[in-house]
Design a protein around this nucleic acid. Structure first.
Lengths: 133, 133
DNA sequence: CATACATTTAACGCACTCGTTAAATGAATG
DNA sequence: CATTCATTTAACGAGTGCGTTAAATGTATG
């Protein structure tokens, strides 16, 4: 997963149920690999690599304390993920009827000068690639 | 990706930058595969399969309208994802000092009867697996 | 310093992802 | 009804993810 942007790394890390469980566990306090493994149905090496993934997404940090390495939750990157999703809140939060949604889409399209379902017959052959805001 | 839970499917779908761009595009209005492809640096079959992934995560729906198939943003599943992340807001939202975080972790641990960094020497060999709330 | 404990790395298997190009399918249209 | 346009499926290759077991590494401790 080399060259992956931060946001992708975070979403990718969250896509695994085991890692979400690990994060939930760390929310209750720092823990070692052995402790986390004791509560999971997988081997210790597997847990170790899940932690490596989480560390790669900077969702955890780890400190060596003598013989042990404790994992610590670093929730900051979750803010970025939350912010990304929040931009879509209007699309699920409002009680949009199908017509309202349609009109909203049309307005957004006109605002952005984008081709919509009304003129699918002449697709927008814009040359500019889409970008993430 | 058979047998994947909804939340994992959503996070997994969001983990790809191209798919996030597609969702952003659909937020401005429904669009066809051809239209989306015109604004992306990849082939149409590639876009088609991205849409299939998004559909699998129920992040979009598609309707056939004559010759064309328009994709429509279905943001509802994002709510679930947002809710999951929101539970960690306290961990990034508050101005936790390192000491505060430490104390919070200890309190959470005591509340849950979980072993913390204080007694890493005697790991919790609990038999119950962690679960997602 | 030899032994034990905590953790990681190595090596393997299997399944999936993401891109490509070429071929197949669906649905108007002349 | 043959052609054309929109879209999907097939087949391939390179890369990645997630689990395993066995071996290596780090760090106390007797």
């Amino acid at each position: 997963m080399s060259g992956t942007d931060q946001l992708s790394a975070v979403f990718s890390a969250l896509a695994d149920p085991t890692r979400r469980v690990i994060l939930a566990g760390l929310a209750e306090g720092d823990a070692t690999v052995t402790e986390l493994t004791a509560r999971l149905p997988i081997s210790m090496p597997a847990v170790s690599r899940h932690l490596k993934v989480l560390e790669g997404a900077t969702l955890i940090s780890r400190t060596r304390s003598g013989k042990w390495r404790a994992s610590h939750l670093e929730a900051a990157p979750l803010r970025e993920a939350a912010d990304w999703i929040e931009r879509y809140r209007e699309f699920w939060d409002t009680s949009l009827t199908r017509l309202d949604a349609h009109l909203a889409a049309v307005q957004a399209a006109e605002r952005a000068g984008v081709t919509t379902e009304h003129d699918l017959g002449r697709p927008a052959h814009s040359t500019t690639d889409l970008e993430e805001p």
